[in-house]
Computed example of a mutant assay.
Amino acid sequence: MYKIVKSRLRFSAIFFSILIIDVIVKNISEVSLFRMVTKSSLLLLLVVLVLYHRSEQKKENIFFLISALICFWLGDIFMLFYKNIILYFVAIFFFVLGKLFYVFRLSTKRDFSMNRLLPYVLFGVAFMFVVYNFIFNGLCETSFFMVFLYFFAALKVFLFAILRKNAVVPLSYNLVLLGVFFSFFSDTITALSSFSEIVIPFSDSAIMVFYGLSQFFIVIGILEDKNTCVFKKSCKSWL
């Protein structure tokens, strides 16, 4: 397994190959043993990558990142049984936890200007308002609270990703922010498909593709924050 994470080309090829296979399996059968394997493999690969680079990371940072990935993995498994309303909300709970662990990992000790952050806060709140305007009629009291909590956690991840600017190397900042935007796409399509009458072509495939891309770029970006050269040819740990 560690041989895979030593090569950026090999790791990326295997990760995206599994992602494509998972999308294909999802269109064939929502719940299957093979689907559990493909979804779990994506997060497992990222966990192994994090562990391979653990020597460059603080212990608490490793804990937050691994915890986030484990929570997303549990959420993925429970979401396979989304037709059971209890398991559906359990899945959302773990997704929220996963995003909060990302917030803890992305936080920095640098001071920030509220004036600089305010436009992003307004953008995030406006984005949530627009989405809620489309899905409001499809929400019950419980789902309203859980979805609100989920989007609030997503907004926190976005803001803390923004706050990393000038605190980490540019490559790390850009990769994480790219991953966060992919997560926005996945979350928005999921909300609209689940709670509104809007029909989005290939929504099931798009949700998984954007979700996989978001996890990939967020994790890779986080590992780059100390210039550990995960994506640099000259780095001995990523040849």
Rank of each mutant, 00 (worst) to 15 (best):
M36I: 14
L74V: 15
L69M: 13
L69P: 04
D76V: 03
I66K: 02
T38W: 00
L80R: 01
F101L: 05
A68F: 03
Y52D: 09
F81N: 07
Y82D: 14
V103G: 04
I28M: 14
F101V: 03
I77V: 15
S67R: 02
F93P: 02
I66P: 02
S32P: 03
I86W: 13
F89P: 01
F63R: 09
F72A: 09
L87E: 05
N27V: 06
L65F: 06
E56V: 13
L42K: 02
S41T: 14
F101W: 07
L69D: 01
N84H: 10
L51F: 14
F34E: 12
Y88G: 04
L69V: 05
V31L: 11
F72Y: 14
F93T: 15
Q57F: 09
Y52C: 05
I92R: 01
F78A: 12
S67M: 12
A68E: 01
V48I: 15
I24K: 10
I24S: 05
V50F: 04
L65C: 09
V47G: 06
I86C: 07
N61F: 06
Y52K: 07
R35S: 15
F95L: 06
S40W: 04
K99I: 08
M79H: 12
T108D: 07
S107A: 14
V48A: 09
G98W: 00
L45H: 06
A91G: 15
L42R: 02
K59T: 14
T108R: 07
I70D: 04
A91P: 00
L80A: 11
I66T: 09
L51R: 08
F104Q: 09
L80T: 06
E60W: 09
F64T: 00
T38F: 02
K58H: 13
F112K: 02
C71L: 12
K58Q: 12
V96E: 06
S113L: 11
L74Y: 11
L46T: 02
L49F: 11
E56K: 12
I70Y: 09
K59G: 11
E60K: 10
I24W: 10
K39S: 08
R110D: 14
F78C: 08
V37E: 01
I85Y: 10
L87T: 05
I77Y: 00
H53Q: 13
N27L: 12
C71D: 08
V23Y: 00
K59D: 14
C71V: 01
S32T: 08
S32F: 03
L97C: 15
L100C: 10
